[in-house]
Write a protein that binds this DNA or RNA. Structure first.
Lengths: 113, 113
DNA sequence: ATAATTGATCGTAATATTACGATATAATTG
DNA sequence: CAATTATATCGTAATATTACGATCAATTAT
């Protein structure tokens, strides 16, 4: 974030920004969609699906994991990644609240219309 | 984006990622909230509101403008910034579609529960 | 016309992200 | 046990973002 200024903003603003950052890369969007559609959600499968290096995908997975959006459970030599559904609903709420807050505004209220 | 790989992803994935990137900084979240709540939405007011340099805020405003999320109309020496409501609804739809796509999945479908 | 105000743009430093190959770790197979 | 497979982590280069001061362009006020 350049020289970091997170302290200037509310926890809620920082939280939304963090969640948005999770979706702010097409590879992570693709990963989430793939996990949503697939029963066999393992890292290896993703490497074939997206054409990115294994280490790159692992890195993206870690980021999603840190934000709690996905969970990984060890299954022998491989890892089963899947969406964390409860957390996901929470995130959806967060975005929805933001969007509602914004679109509450009636067109007539705006200064430049 | 490091070495850019946008060509690997669908237009839809890239579009969502771009929109998410717009929200991926607390200053921009704050700007959008402020514009939503305020009738007097001018750049100068924002500089007092957020404590960031004028040039920094201008930069954030340009980013939001490029994505069509806000519009600026010149009003004498100053500029009136406001949300682009129609575009905003479009964006909301975009996110909503994504969230619905994700949460269509029933818990039982997942491999690691 | 000059000065003051407003906002955009430029240049640049600090920092963060993205991507990859190489290597490490852990489980599985032969 | 050695080889293989699956994933994580490290190191690092390329690129992008964030932030600021300085400056420019336009408008308004004196």
């Amino acid at each position: 974030m350049g020289r970091s200024k997170t302290a200037l903003f509310t926890p809620s603003q920082n939280e939304l920004a963090d969640l948005a950052r999770a979706l702010a890369h097409p590879a992570r969007v693709a990963i989430l969609q793939y996990l949503a559609n697939s029963q066999s959600c393992i890292n290896g499968t993703l490497v074939q699906e997206l054409s990115l290096a294994q280490s790159t995908i692992s890195q993206h997975l870690q980021e999603l994991k840190e934000l709690g959006l996905i969970r990984g459970t060890i299954d022998g030599a491989s890892v089963n990644y899947c969406l964390d559904i409860p957390r996901w609903r929470e995130v959806q709420q967060y975005f929805q609240a933001f969007f509602e807050q914004i679109s509450e505004i009636k067109t007539g209220d705006l200064c430049c219309d």
